[in-house]
Design a protein around this nucleic acid. Structure first.
Length: 467
RNA sequence: GGACGGGUGGCCGAGCGGCUGAAGGCACCGGUUUGCUAAACCGGCAUACAGGGUAAACCUGUAUCGCGGGUUCGAAUCCCGCCCCGUCCGCCA
């Protein structure tokens, strides 16, 4: 949620911000509705002030007259009743006007609020302007000692690579057919060492963020109420991306939603709370199952473990003071944690500065990390993929956009006793099974086996090879 | 699924038609006292929106006692609907 006051004062900033993010939202309509609403509210408040004053004056008198009426002899009742009616008439008339204005306001608000929820947070000025992912800017690359990203897989390792799908099949790591039988397209079943690798890499990443970086371990519900989805900024825009359980249709209280990321639970934890500045920054990490409908992605990445409806993810979230410098410093730090993790796994990766067109509504800045996946990308003359970077991580800075919606504030020395909305950030630590793609493909050997990354071996009982 | 009980400020908790934005306590902030700490005492202490004021201090108004509606001149208080939380029993893990 953006600040309506800020929009009122500088609508152009939000017009440009939305345009650069390729989001269509009628800012002028918001201004018109806001103006009309404020006018009506102002008029209503004036009337109410008058009404309150009147009822304070005439109220006790009415009470007194009512008492007299009970005891009064027949003859005097008419006079008292007339006086009562007169006393009651004026405030009543005002109340009717207030009600009328209330109806007017009610008519305006749904549209205004609906529009307001759609206004994206403008990207920071240093975020490159662009249309979409093709305009993202590469910031840096990293390769392990045994890999040279300027050369092909075959030049690096001396044999042609198999894709993770082929490896999964030959080594019995995934059963796609049965996944589809059970749950439809984009479903899979990890089997044997596939499941063990999945568990091992998640556990490794989770221990990594907790033990090496002091994040707090926490579990989250993955089935949440609508407020949590709206509060974290996934609704209304991402509504069609989420699975909805229509409990209300079965006579239950509310519909529930399956979360697409642990971020929803972690950020929702402190919704409607006022935190003590001394508690900040909050550094939370969770591992949770994520569900995504992948609506609108029909036909893209249909095979393999890349784009699937259900996966598991270690997610990190930071809630800090409302300070741009602090927010930027945390962003760097969170990205650094992932770099350290990927280096320990010896996976080649690159950092991408996302351009305005590739940002979501809620972030001011986003850096993606992509791992090299030899089985992805364009096909060569032999119809074999030439490899490509594929997104495995995404680090966002949201300023107070999310906390405003969640009504998550803090108070302390630096705020001068005022309550201020917190800033929030989030980043993937590791998502699996997607990360198994670069692991399987990069660690495959000429004999068809897959070496187990060193750091994962202790999570797999010391096993050095799969297959 | 059945039977109850309950949702009030940062927290606990009273109030059950006007004098209540709301007693009292805790926490917090300022002060007095004090060798230090503690205690004691005094004072302060909700949020949002709108208007005024220098985008500060502050002032004014309105709203807010789970949410929505109703009764009433007037509702935290009465009525109706909904949501949520809790307890006990049953069922399942």
């Amino acid at each position: 949620m953006i600040d309506l006051k800020a929009l009122r004062e500088d609508p152009e900033r939000f017009r440009v911000g939305a345009a650069r993010k390729k989001v269509t939202v009628d800012i002028d309509r918001i201004l018109v509705l806001d103006e009309a609403r404020r006018k009506a509210v102002g008029a209503q408040e004036t009337l109410r002030a008058e009404q309150n004053k009147l009822s304070k004056e005439s109220g006790p008198e009415i009470g007194k007259l009512m008492g007299q009426l009970k005891k009064a002899p027949e003859g005097e009742r008419g006079a008292i009743e007339a006086k009562l009616a007169e006393l009651k008439a004026r405030p009543k008339a005002l109340a009717d006007q207030v009600t009328a204005l209330g109806k007017e306001i009610e008519a305006l608000e749904p549209e205004l609020n609906g529009l307001l929820l759609q206004v994206p947070l403008p990207a920071d000025p240093d975020v490159p302007v662009g249309e979409g992912s093709e305009d993202n800017v590469e910031l840096s690359r990293w390769d392990p000692a045994w890999w040279d990203s300027s050369k092909s897989f075959e030049e690096n390792k001396g044999f042609a690579p198999k894709t993770h799908i082929e490896l999964a099949e030959s080594l019995g790591l995934v059963n796609f057919e049965r996944g589809v039988k059970l749950a439809g397209s984009r479903s899979y079943v990890l089997t044997g060492m596939g499941m063990r690798l999945h568990q091992a890499v998640l556990r490794y990443a989770y221990d990594f963020i907790l033990e090496k970086h002091g994040f707090q371990a926490i579990s989250v519900p993955v089935l949440v109420r609508e407020e949590a989805m709206q509060g974290t900024g996934f609704f209304p825009t991402g509504r069609e991306q989420t699975y909805q359980l229509e409990e209300s249709k079965r006579g239950g209280g509310q519909d529930m939603f399956l979360t697409g990321t642990g971020e929803v639970g972690l950020m929702g934890l402190h919704a409607d709370e006022i935190l003590d500045e001394a508690q900040l920054p909050l550094q939370y990490a969770t591992v949770s199952t994520c569900f995504r409908r992948e609506a609108g992605a029909a036909g893209r990445d249909t095979a393999g473990l890349y784009r699937i409806h259900q996966f598991d993810k270690v997610e990190q979230v930071v809630i800090c003071r409302a300070d741009e410098g602090e927010s930027r410093a945390w962003h760097k730090k969170m990205i650094g944690i992932v770099e350290e993790l990927l280096r320990s796994l010896e996976l080649p990766y690159r950092l991408l500065q996302c351009c305005t067109g590739d940002l979501g509504v809620k972030n001011a800045d986003m850096v993606d990390i992509e791992c090299w996946m030899p089985g992805r990308g364009e096909l060569d003359a032999n119809e074999r993929p030439m490899g490509a970077y594929g997104e495995t991580h995404s680090a966002s800075r949201l300023y107070d956009f999310q906390c405003r919606r969640l009504n998550m504030r803090y108070k302390g020395e630096s705020t001068g006793g005022k309550t201020v909305f917190c800033h929030s950030l989030n980043n993937t630590v590791l998502a699996s099974p997607r990360v198994l793609i670069p692991i399987l493909e990069m660690y495959q050997e000429a004999d068809g086996r897959v070496r187990v990354p060193k750091v994962l071996q202790r999570h797999l009982g010391g096993i050095e090879h799969v297959g």
